[in-house]
């Protein structure tokens, strides 16, 4: 996990389940207002969405040209990068 003032980056592309979910939840626990998590995965994490929603977090998913998924989540929608 790499963290700076604005972004906590989690690269979970080569991790065996449930490690990606574990790291996502750990990153969610570290989130401060104004920050967002940028998570990289090989597939779309449907179960994570419902957990993020239950935790009151905003999220957005992007597909990269390489076919990876980038999941961005934060406390408020305005904390997500455009």
């Amino acid at each position: 996990m790499i963290s700076n003032d604005k972004t906590i980056t989690v690269d979970a592309r080569n991790l065996e389940p449930p490690e990606p979910m574990d790291r996502a939840l750990a990153a969610a626990g570290l989130l401060r207002d104004g920050q967002h998590v940028r998570m990289l995965l090989h597939r779309e994490p449907f179960p994570l969405y419902s957990i993020l929603a239950t935790m009151g977090l905003s999220y957005r998913t992007q597909l990269t040209p390489e076919g990876d998924f980038v999941i961005l989540f934060a406390h408020a929608p305005e904390d997500l990068p455009t």
């Binding site: 939840l25 626990g29 989130l31 179960p47 419902s50 957990i51 239950t54 935790m55 009151g56 406390h75």
Partner: peptide
């Protein structure tokens, strides 16, 4: 932030 409190039925039985 609230902790995760479990999934609803619609999200999985």
């Amino acid at each position: 932030m609230q902790p995760a409190t479990g999934l609803s039925y619609e999200q999985g039985p």
